[in-house]
Design a protein around this nucleic acid. Structure first.
Lengths: 160, 160
DNA sequence: AAAATAAAAGAGTTTTTTGTCTTTTATTAA
DNA sequence: TTAATAAAAGACAAAAAACTCTTTTATTTT
């Protein structure tokens, strides 16, 4: 409670694996995937509302993802973002890699740049497994397969 | 290479699970654990050098950790930080919890505050397992046991 | 008791991340 | 071909995280 307020470190800073930008990116791509099955397109405003993110911020992120071929886009009326056969073959790992880099999959848990098999940090072996599991999870989840999953049940993408 | 430099998102931002502050915290406590077996104490300068971190920054972090009973400290000449029977029973999870909060163990992978069993995000089930593995790893690693491990083999705590 | 030492406390600064706003460019429908 | 639409681009602004510096307080040694 108030205890938290006076603490320098602690619960004020709440970190998860991904950066906020990356969370938005994943949710945005999922949203586009779900909404554009039949050649439809969605605009940034619709996406921002759908995943409850700042409009201009998600626009920036999507521009980069589109440049990298992770989503498709088209300007002008009836334009917007969409997925096609190609983009649907990408995985969640591709998104994370594009936004947060490969540190999550390869980096040392304690932030040591020189950590390796020969010169391991005290948690090297343990983290290797966790990183591997995480990478496998993200790398086996193709957007196209998520699309099918969306058909069968309800999932939430907005924080409200 | 230069390709990376011009990218808005991407490899510039390299995230891992923990905040940098938390990485420093873990390494500092490990360092203290290793260096203060027989009633010895280590000063911040020595710690900062040992784990290659900014002196004043790690000082701040350690002040907080000492306030929370994760490390012990004593002012004055021959003073410094050290571990005792009590602090050695703490786990790595305690450090992470103190510094980064519990989001890593409990939060939604996509950053949704309302994510739950009833209203899951599309990766809810998958992330649950990863989070659990990570928490178990950190919660079963007691500092005291690490101390024994340090005795038997060499591990690196500095990034150089 | 005085001087020296080392953590505690607190007030900064810098850098990075996150978020906002405006202008430009491409596309399409009328 | 013109007007409307929507993404692309770029320049800013705010907030958070990372880091620095100075002063104070507690402890110990001489």
């Amino acid at each position: 409670m108030s205890f938290i307020k006076f603490c320098y470190l602690c619960a004020i800073q709440q970190k998860w694996m991904f950066s906020k930008t990356c969370e938005y990116a994943i949710r945005a791509v999922m949203f586009i995937t779900r909404e554009t099955k039949d050649g439809k397109r969605v605009g940034v405003r619709e996406i921002a509302e759908g995943i409850d993110s700042p409009v201009h911020f998600i626009a920036k992120i999507l521009q980069e993802l589109s440049k990298r071929g992770i989503v498709q886009s088209l300007k002008g009326p009836t334009g917007g973002f969409y997925m096609d056969g190609n983009t649907l073959t990408h995985t969640l790992a591709d998104i994370v890699l594009a936004v947060d880099g490969d540190k999550l999959f390869n980096g040392c848990g304690l932030g040591l740049s020189e950590c390796s098999e020969k010169q391991p940090c005290p948690l090297h072996a343990e983290f290797k497994k966790i990183r591997k599991d995480l990478h496998e999870l993200l790398a086996r989840t193709k957007l196209g397969e998520l699309q099918d999953k969306f058909d069968m049940s309800t999932f939430y993408l907005s924080r409200r």
